[in-house]
Design a protein around this nucleic acid. Structure first.
Lengths: 186, 186
DNA sequence: GTCGGATGTAAGCGACTGCTTACATGGGGG
DNA sequence: CCCCCATGTAAGCAGTCGCTTACATCCGAC
């Protein structure tokens, strides 16, 4: 029967639907009607519970970025992020990175969240080298992660899109180690 | 006085305006009214000369992808593309890659053009290594280029966004050489 | 000159957007 | 029991979208 009236369940359904659709289509190509429809609720409830499409998008990003870095020590961050991004299916379109990637524009809170996510990754990665330009090197590694995500999900570029995740991770970590390894003992 | 009636000039103005706006905002956030307005012509002319917004977008991509690979020997392709992407201003939003990146939009001719562009780059890059997985390695290098463009233009991620282009190119080419160098003489 | 097609314009159509409003309904507290 | 408010719904507003239509204007061919 499932409780016919349950605000929490409705909110969760909306958030799940929004996560899926923003990830698949990006912000612009996802309509509030689509989200409500996928969640199986009336679209007015989206506005009652989240205020606006923008605020819902920000909530999606905030929720996912919180889950994203939780359990990866810096040494294995690159490898783990790559594997997580590529796991299960070659086109893992509900991965948090994709919602971010597919929504280029955009001021508002979403921008802030997106940027924070990048900062967290970059900070963790930059701890891996003692080079003077550690942060730039970390940004470049982050750029690589992002680029691989884009080429796989947006372009579906072959052979990368269907490549073995472990093989990709091995190649990338090997090359990235040139940028991130410690050059002197600290 | 500039000839008041000149179909070629009008078409060119529309193409220039479309190139600029698609590059800055992506496909969805660029309206035909904006394009016509920037070109200084009536929007109906866009449809007379290009048929549809989609067709105009495809024309933009086709035009730019033709110009893009024209004068870079494979050995210096990575470096040249990086430098070109980052040249002049830290946020070079009219770069052809950006129009592509900002439009994750699947059907229509645009998809084909976007993919062709990737194929050309990847083919050129893959000629640089004799490893068995040369094409995958080339895809990864291409992914890096794309990711750097995204982080600079979309995220405006610091310090990458304002980093010296030559310094970035040096770091990337050094690390990428791990993937692309010949391991045995052919 | 003048006629006809190339070129440019003004206006608006129908669909869709994010969002709001006015209203139905159900279930727990008094 | 019944009332009241949390929850859910139907309908629509105002704006924008891509695109079309009906109409002016210019200029070269004859």
């Amino acid at each position: 029967m499932s409780r016919p009236r349950d605000a929490d369940a409705t909110k969760a359904a909306l958030l799940d639907a929004a996560t899926k659709l923003f990830g698949e289509r990006g912000y612009d190509r996802t309509t509030v009607r689509d989200i409500a429809s996928l969640a199986g609720v009336n679209q007015a409830l989206l506005f009652r519970y989240y205020g606006s499409k923008d605020a819902l998008f920000a909530t999606v990003l905030a929720t996912q970025s919180r889950e994203l870095l939780e359990d990866s020590p810096a040494e294995h961050l690159l490898r783990n992020v790559l594997l997580r991004m590529m796991e299960k299916t070659p086109r893992r379109e509900d991965h948090p990175l994709y919602a971010v990637l597919r929504s280029s524009h955009h001021d508002s809170a979403a921008e802030v969240v997106r940027r924070q996510l990048g900062e967290e990754y970059a900070r963790a990665l930059s701890s891996l080298t003692d080079a003077e330009d550690a942060e730039l090197r970390a940004d470049l590694v982050l750029a690589w992660i992002v680029g691989i995500g884009v080429l796989r999900s947006v372009f579906g570029k072959q052979p990368l899109a269907d490549a073995d995740a472990a093989a990709v991770a091995a190649l990338v970590t090997e090359a990235a180690s040139v940028l991130l390894e410690h050059t002197e003992s600290g």
